[in-house]
Computed example of a mutant assay.
Amino acid sequence: MPRKKTELAVDSRFHGVVAELASTFDSTGDAVYHVLRESIIRGALAPGEWLRQEAIAEAIGVSRVPVRSALIRLEAEGLLAMHGRRGAQVRMLSVARVNEICRLRVLLESHALKLSMARMTSARIERLRGLAGELDSGIGGAELNEVRDRFYRELYDHDHNPVLVETIEGFRGQVSRPWPNYRLPGATPDRYQDLVALVGDGDLAGADAWVYAHVEKVRGHLHAIAETEEQA
């Protein structure tokens, strides 16, 4: 059974995300959404935690209206589950959900790669090389999420395939919460520069195999995390 917590724990980690992001967006709604999303991804809001709109609004310094809108957006992305009057709960990973999301990622990312490589340019390859270098340097936390998103938007050609790329991002976001646990002791991280080299050579089969192996590695690690959450 999912772990249940009575209310939002407004701790230092959550306040840290609020201080970092709340003033960086033009609209209150976007600010609340990004604060909550980053708090879930970074683990400041734990899997299974119940969120009270009043506590969130007070912590961020806004009314309940943008909080409600942000919760609805996060439910649509699969990061939260809404339970009527009981409120919203940070969704826990399950083995079945991890497996399904990763299967869909493989299908969608393989298709996106095929479309993107047909339009690949030398300028995009250079941008991908720079982003891959940053990812391979061992960055972490919010910077890792931001650079990884930019990398995949370039790789899958967001300008020409916006709906496809944003759908992939939605699935990736659902399994980003445990990312700090992804680089497990002894695990060898994949080199993004190897993928860029394959793309630059026009090797669609090789690039597709890299993506498949990468998602499978992610699935394996998340499978272990999900099993731990289900047993807690």
Results as ranks from 00 to 15, higher is better:
residue 98 V to I: 11
residue 102 C to R: 11
residue 103 R to G: 04
residue 103 R to E: 07
residue 103 R to I: 05
residue 105 R to H: 09
residue 109 E to S: 05
residue 109 E to R: 14
residue 111 H to C: 10
residue 111 H to T: 08
residue 113 L to E: 14
residue 114 K to R: 15
residue 115 L to D: 07
residue 115 L to N: 08
residue 115 L to K: 13
residue 116 S to H: 04
residue 118 A to I: 00
residue 121 T to F: 05
residue 121 T to L: 04
residue 121 T to D: 01
residue 122 S to C: 09
residue 123 A to K: 08
residue 125 I to E: 06
residue 125 I to A: 06
residue 127 R to M: 06
residue 127 R to N: 10
residue 130 G to Y: 11
residue 132 A to N: 13
residue 133 G to V: 07
residue 134 E to F: 04
residue 136 D to I: 01
residue 137 S to V: 00
residue 137 S to I: 05
residue 140 G to K: 09
residue 141 G to N: 14
residue 143 E to A: 14
residue 146 E to G: 01
residue 147 V to G: 10
residue 147 V to P: 05
residue 148 R to Q: 09
residue 148 R to N: 04
residue 148 R to S: 05
residue 149 D to T: 15
residue 150 R to Q: 11
residue 150 R to V: 02
residue 151 F to C: 02
residue 152 Y to W: 15
residue 152 Y to R: 10
residue 152 Y to G: 08
residue 152 Y to Q: 12
residue 156 Y to H: 13
residue 157 D to R: 07
residue 160 H to I: 02
residue 161 N to F: 15
residue 163 V to G: 01
residue 163 V to C: 01
residue 167 T to D: 09
residue 171 F to Q: 07
residue 172 R to M: 00
residue 172 R to Y: 00
residue 174 Q to C: 03
residue 174 Q to R: 09
residue 176 S to I: 00
residue 177 R to E: 10
